Computed example of a mutant assay.
Amino acid sequence: MHVRRRIAAALTAGALVAVLAACGSDSDTASDESGDGSGALTLYSGRSENLVAPLIDRLEDTLGFPIEVVYGGTPEITGKLVEEGASSPADVVFSQDAGALGLLDQAGMLEALPASVTDLVPPYYRAADGTWVATSARARVLVYNDEKVQPQDLPTGIDGLLDPKWKGQIGFAPTNASFQAFVTGLRVSRGEDGARQWLEAFKANEPVAFEGNGPLMEGVDSGQVTLGLTNHYYWYGLAEEKGADNLAVQIHYFQAGDPGALVNIAGTAVLATTDQPEQAQQFVAALLSPESQTYFADETSEYPIVSGVETKHDLRPLAEVGTSDIELAELASLEQTQALLQELGFI
């Protein structure tokens, strides 16, 4: 029997938390009563329970110690950690996005990982100071309804989405951490004025907001909208559920160097507040094991970070995905992104 307890991430007031809490995600939040957590590793997870709980159950058995999980959206989890500060009970954070990890690193809240852990991950997919590592990668893509538009007529970059012919026909999930990471990348690549200009023009084209990437995919597949900005793995999940031959929604990749071609990560780090550093490091290392990497590749349709891991899905090789020119460490300015999105009425 698993003794791991799921706890709801309850946020309180505070300026930063108020900004972060205004933004939702696709995460499911659990709410069981908490008991005595003595000896348990406390994990704050911005990855949704339905995606990662089966893996954490396995790791709990493999590692031999209980894992107590606080689930919530990555923005909420990040805000909770910043608010709690040095009094946080968290040992490990599991984030949906590199920007949140960078923010926590800049706040001095992360503990450096040993080289035996960081060396498992290519340099691009880990913090330069060794405080966090990626666990999987996902590509930003444009999905489209192939009954309404043909591939040759699709834009090669995000500026093509500003064409009036797409007015009211583009779906997006503004409260999702991955969309906010895209906007952060846009700010980094084009500056504040350039990002604002694009967002204002995008808003003028009347995009359709969805509560999450799952509903967005359904909206494109049903023809409610023609296009959608999302992550690649949502297509694979829907294809597995309905059968690829039954889908009208398909994937289109933007050209290399375009802000819309961002390859972001899910990642993990040990909190400086931990009083169980050895167990925390063991958990992080376990997320990089061949078994865990295969889980991410097969069950969540993401790109494994550790080399040599196969997947049952026919993913376009990560080396062939047109990544943007943005360094993941530059995605840490989450607060500024959320403030801009709030100012412009996106969230």
Rank of each mutant, 00 (worst) to 15 (best):
A115L: 14
G322I: 03
A319W: 02
L104M: 09
A285Y: 04
E218W: 12
F94R: 05
K148C: 10
N264A: 07
H252W: 12
P174R: 01
V17G: 05
V188Y: 11
K312L: 00
G160Q: 05
G72A: 06
Q255G: 02
H2Y: 15
P89N: 05
E327K: 15
V188N: 13
I305P: 09
A177V: 08
I158L: 10
A244K: 11
G267L: 11
Q338N: 08
E335N: 08
E218G: 00
V183W: 03
F283M: 03
L287G: 01
A319Q: 05
N264S: 11
D26K: 03
N213I: 12
K203F: 10
L315R: 15
Q336P: 13
A13W: 06
Q336G: 09
Y125E: 03
T78S: 03
P122E: 08
L287F: 11
T337Y: 14
S292M: 02
P114S: 05
L334V: 15
V69W: 08
P317D: 02
V117W: 08
A248Y: 10
Q169K: 08
G35L: 04
E49R: 13
S301K: 09
A21P: 05
G64P: 04
S333W: 02
K312V: 00
P155G: 03
G102P: 01
L328G: 14
G79M: 15
P155D: 09
E200K: 10
T274Q: 00
E299Q: 05
L161K: 01
P277Y: 02
E310C: 07
A137K: 03
V70P: 15
